[in-house]
Design a binder for these strands. Structure first.
Length: 240
DNA sequence: GCGACAG
DNA sequence: ATCTTGTCGC
């Protein structure tokens, strides 16, 4: 791994390069990624799940974390956190070009049955959110779980755990707005790759316990944030 | 023209 | 995203 081009189904995808700030070109890349997404369950098994997240420090320094959990017990099996340098600015709808590279580095060496990403999947204007980029790149099942909406519209789901409404855009269903805790705002769940929306919802809800965010993401975020505030991270002038 | 806008 | 503990409200 670590390569700019990634093997995936039909060949090499120019998912990464030190992306140039040519949004027209990057939007084309996203459409190509969107075409390759499979919205069907292609899980071999569901014994483990990985949570992937990135925490930001000042400027372009950040920490990417990947935590592998047992799907049933949610016990942490393995975890990895790395300091990364971001090479692309945050531009709504182009998040993948900012975070995918670092996320891949945190995932290196961690093989899970499904990967949960702290961002959207298909619930994206071009149906190619970060979770889709990751899924197509790894050729593994992924789902996106976000705290806020990027596009589309939906009714507010009832205040009951497990209640959800469909997120729609341009006549198509792109995700779901899922209530995990009765008293908290809902979360946005969408397919990343090789999963059906129903399965993605089942996984998000099934791995959520006493918090609004599912455990894989909560733990990954904790790990990344803790590392970012650690001496080790602050003292190393240049993080790679 | 005026918002909206994952992290 | 991040700076940040307790606290006001339902």
């Amino acid at each position: 791994m670590g390569s700019i081009y990634t093997e995936s189904g039909r060949g090499m995808l120019p998912i990464l390069k030190p992306p140039k700030l040519d949004l027209e070109e990057l939007a084309r890349v996203q459409r190509r990624v969107a075409e390759q997404v499979i919205e069907e369950d292609r899980l071999e098994k569901l014994e483990t799940i990985a949570g992937c997240d990135i925490s930001f420090a000042e400027g372009d320094r950040a920490c990417a974390a990947c935590v592998l959990l047992d799907y049933e017990s949610l016990e942490v099996i393995k975890q990895k956190v790395v300091a990364v340098k971001l090479k692309f600015p945050y531009i709504p709808t182009f998040l993948a070009f900012r975070e995918l590279e670092g996320m891949l580095r945190a995932i290196e060496g961690i093989d899970a049955d499904v990967y949960m990403v702290g961002a959207h999947g298909r619930a994206h204007p071009r149906r190619a959110g970060l979770a889709c980029h990751l899924g197509v790149t790894l050729d593994k099942p992924t789902l996106g779980v976000a705290k806020g909406r990027l596009c589309g519209t939906a009714e507010e789901p009832p205040r009951r755990r497990g209640a959800y409404t469909l997120l729609k855009d341009g006549g198509e269903t792109i995700g779901a707005v899922l209530r995990v805790l009765p008293g908290s705002r809902p979360i946005y769940v969408s397919v990343g790759h090789k999963l059906s929306l129903g399965k993605a919802i089942e996984i998000a809800l099934g791995t959520a316990r006493d918090h609004r965010l599912p455990e894989p993401l909560r733990v990954a975020h904790q790990l990344a944030t803790r590392e970012m505030r650690s001496k080790r991270f602050k003292s190393c002038a240049q993080s790679w």
